[in-house]
């Protein structure tokens, strides 16, 4: 009872003893959280760019694409993961697929907004210089849409970090895996530590992506300063 392990026995909210004795468990959960989030956002970006390009081909495509990505967002995460379970079985693919689908709502909109914001005279000039559609997309439109895309990636990443916890329902929720059983056993230190780590993870990701955004698009800051 007495001595160093007392905060674990007393079930305190703050317990350094917990952090040191379960550091391996905490590291594993954090790493799972990071890779599930990272893989989901990367796939989300890879899927959203073609979808946004498709939606730009005309109203016939824009309506269904936007309606579908909005509809996906109304499906509760708990239901989404449960529904994907029979498709993929008990694997991280369930959580990653769900998170990719959610990220599309934000990413498709932002890519479209970014592409729409490319000035017509710039495109006209590129066309006059003999740029074909593909070269125009790759060298003119996508670079100019980059600020909006990166802003979308930041928002999507932060929400994905938070949503990953719900993956605990299929045992692939990163830090959520530590929260779920700790609620059942009323283990305060574990719930608090995992929750704080989760919020920290989101904030670190946000700051890191802000730095990437500044590095990749230095002109947006210069324009603001002028």
């Amino acid at each position: 009872m007495a001595g160093r392990s007392s905060c674990l026995v007393a079930n305190d909210w703050f317990c350094w003893e917990y952090v040191t004795s379960r550091s391996q468990e905490l590291t594993d959960a954090t790493l799972q959280h990071v890779w599930i989030t990272a893989v989901s956002v990367v796939i989300g970006v890879l899927v959203s760019v073609p979808l946004a390009l498709l939606a730009r081909r005309g109203r016939r495509w824009a309506g269904p694409v936007l309606a579908l990505t909005t509809l996906l967002y109304t499906i509760p995460s708990l239901a989404m993961f449960s529904l994907l379970l029979p498709v993929f079985g008990l694997s991280a693919a369930v959580v990653v697929t769900g998170l990719v689908l959610y990220s599309l709502t934000i990413l498709v909109r932002n890519v479209m907004a970014g592409l729409d914001a490319v000035p017509d005279d710039v495109k006209e000039a590129a066309r006059g210089m003999g740029y074909g559609p593909l070269r125009m997309l790759w060298q003119v439109e996508l670079p100019l849409a980059l600020p909006a895309l990166l802003a979308g990636i930041r928002i999507a990443t932060v929400s994905t970090v938070a949503l990953t916890t719900v993956g605990a329902i299929v045992g692939k929720g990163g830090l959520g895996n530590l929260i779920a059983p700790a609620v059942t056993s009323s283990f305060k230190a574990q719930v608090l530590t995992a929750s704080v780590l989760c919020v920290l993870l989101a904030l670190v990701a946000d700051v890191a992506l802000l730095a990437v955004q500044r590095l990749l698009t230095p002109w947006t800051r210069a324009a603001k300063g002028a």
Partner: peptide, 10 residues
């Protein structure tokens, strides 16, 4: 957006 509802509920 960074605060998971699940964690708050827990």
């Amino acid at each position: 957006r960074a605060v998971p509802v699940f964690a708050v509920l827990a």
